[in-house]
Write a protein that binds this DNA or RNA. Structure first.
Lengths: 182, 182
DNA sequence: TTGAAAATTGGCCGCACGGTCAGCAAGGTG
DNA sequence: CACCTTGCTGACCGTGCGGCCAATTTTCAA
């Protein structure tokens, strides 16, 4: 092999170990030294490949952010009712698959507004809320936020549930919570 | 006046300012120096009145923990259906009234298991889940967890909603989510 | 008034963090 | 061979944290 340049190989290794650690302990509680130890390199090497700790986070979150953006972009081309259904299923699936990272979101949420790397993620989240609510009614919007929060919390908390069980639970809950659009 | 001993007066002042700061910035992001500045005393004074930062947190959380324990204790004497209703209304009210502190819970959640001061709070939370679920069915338990997570997240996030609106939203959401016990 | 107890404080400690930098080893290229 | 680029590292820096302590001020009852 060795088809992968050494450069990219190490970078991905750091990214992967950072993902595991962020998922297990959260963003704040994971130090650059922790990541370096997991990879088996020095802290300086981590900072050679990434401009700083937030850049590592951005790299870890990027696939999920892209997937979420794709999801809302797909749903935007459907009728309101179909869009809501697509959003429910797609978001539940996305959250369950990347469930370890959800505690990270929670850590970072308060300071996210000041990090421009995450503007896209925030915007996608707001659009998801609108798709789930199906209208501008404050009650429906509130229920949509409630659903998102419940789903994120549930994915964060339950480590022992299987992916399939968790996905089914989330879809059931969101179905109960959200009114079908007119 | 001066009926209050100086001792208790300062202690409560620290507790109050800590509550405000924890609510605004979270537990981790609030330093003992921040609290001291808000009170107008030195950091050493804070540590004279409390044995450490976790003790300040415990004092701040204590009223809510007591109220939650009282709530589940009341509900335990009711029929399953009435208990569920009581738990929904009481918990929504409790969460809305102390909503600022909910972000604190979130900060502390990962390390809560290691702090024995919060064993009672955790136990009360588990009993609340059981009351809301109304049965031992995994799906119902999951929905109850979902409801609690959604409620906590919603109270954390929406700063601009009025207390009454938020309470109504939470009750509506939990009603939709939870099946009435047989 | 006075002296013990309570309350408060500035200064210090050790620690862990994110981040910087000069330099080392390796490997391809003229 | 010399030379330069690439990947990497140990040592170091400044900062802010929680916590501790000796010394000082304040309180208040005898």
């Amino acid at each position: 092999m060795a088809a992968t340049p050494l450069r990219e190989r190490t970078r991905h290794e750091i990214q992967h170990e950072a993902m595991v650690l962020f998922a297990r302990k959260g963003y704040d509680a994971t130090s650059l030294q922790d990541i370096a130890n997991a990879v088996g390199c020095s802290k300086a090497t981590v900072l050679y490949h990434f401009s700083g700790k937030p850049a590592v986070l951005a790299a870890v979150l990027e696939p999920s952010a892209t997937a979420l953006a794709a999801l809302v972009s797909e749903a935007a081309q459907l009728s309101p009712a179909a869009a809501q259904l697509h959003a429910i299923k797609g978001f539940a699936d996305l959250a369950v698959r990347g469930r370890g990272l959800i505690s990270v979101l929670n850590d970072v949420m308060p300071t996210m507004g000041e990090m421009p790397e995450f503007d896209g993620l925030i915007a996608a989240g707001e659009q998801l809320t609108r798709l789930l609510a199906g209208s501008e009614d404050p009650l429906e919007s509130g229920l949509a936020e409630f659903a998102i929060n419940g789903l994120l919390g549930e994915c964060r908390g339950s480590e022992q549930r299987t992916d399939d069980d968790l996905r089914e639970l989330c879809v059931t809950a969101m179905r109960r919570l959200l009114s079908p659009p007119a």
